[in-house]
């Protein structure tokens, strides 16, 4: 099986508002693929579809060859044991220490003795450079450290697929490049496949193999990092160089500005 994840013609609608429209995407095994786009364009929704959390309204998502919408609840759980997801804000369990957070999936899913769990937890914490804080509570860590602990927890069971939801937001430059390197290194040493959702173009391009650009729920451009850097497409150019004017509007669609400022009651 060449591709670990295949997204075919997927559309998705929350209630009535379409969020994703006919998305096509493939994630080859062993690669780091990134999905870029502005906030609200549907990146998190796409990750949730891949994790089998949401079912596509149309089209299909295949993970390791199996369509997620055909799986039973137990099969979905079986599949997720081989996935790790890093949430945007870490989502550490606030009532558990760093150690217990990382040990959580091991204790839930393996019958390993405590001594072995301890060694595994220490190895995972070492991989993210935080072995020294295993006794602390999450509230005693900075945002960047919390995210690294969450990453150690996400890889506790040596997943085949690691998904990162905006791992770089609100990080200082040091944590930023630290996480970037960790993502690449983990992918290569674990022999895993990674999907990185982000809107930090410059910092992400060096560590990834392939890039998808999304806008308003559709894929608008794709290519290798070099293709993207050299692209003349106005859309990609705007995104890569962070220009405000371009095909992507800074303003969310609304009533005309001048009309809005006249302060007249909406229904006369």
């Amino acid at each position: 099986m060449e591709n670990l994840v295949e997204v075919k013609d997927v559309s998705f609608t929350y209630d009535v508002r379409p969020v994703l429209q006919r998305i096509n995407m493939t994630v080859p095994r062993g690669k780091v693929v990134t999905i870029m786009g502005l906030s609200g364009c549907g990146k998190t929704t796409l990750l949730r579809l891949i994790a089998g959390w949401l079912k596509p309204t149309a089209g299909e998502v295949r993970v390791a060859g199996r369509a997620t919408h055909e799986l039973t609840h137990d099969e979905i759980y079986e599949m997720r044991r081989k996935m790790g997801m890093l949430f945007q804000f870490g989502a550490l369990f606030t009532d558990m220490s760093v150690f217990d957070n990382v040990a959580f999936p091991l204790r839930e899913h393996t019958g390993l003795p405590e001594s072995m769990i301890r060694d595994l937890v220490m190895m995972k914490l070492h991989a993210v450079g935080l072995r020294g804080v295993h006794r602390r509570m999450p509230a005693e860590l900075s945002g960047g450290m919390q995210r690294r602990v969450a990453l150690a927890r996400a890889i506790a069971l040596d997943p085949l697929l690691i998904m990162y939801d905006e791992p770089f937001t609100a990080l200082d430059p040091i944590s930023f490049s630290a996480i970037g390197h960790v993502i690449r290194r983990l992918n290569d040493t674990l022999g895993a496949t990674s999907i990185v959702v982000t809107h930090d173009v410059q910092e992400t391009l060096p560590i990834v193999d392939y890039v998808y650009f999304m806008s308003d729920g559709a894929v608008v451009a794709q290519g290798t990092p070099d293709d993207i850097r050299n692209s003349r497409e106005p859309f990609v150019h705007q995104f890569v160089w962070g220009e405000i004017d371009g095909p992507m509007a800074f303003h969310y669609p609304g009533a005309p500005y001048r009309e809005e400022l006249r302060l007249e009651p909406a229904h006369g």
Partner: peptide, 25 residues
């Protein structure tokens, strides 16, 4: 308050993603 905050900070979602059923656990 505890459950509400666990949900708001995606702890419940994270558990679900780790294939641990939050209702049971």
């Amino acid at each position: 308050a505890e459950i509400g905050l666990m949900k708001a900070t995606e702890q419940i979602a994270a558990m679900e993603m780790m294939a641990v059923d939050p209702i049971a656990r």
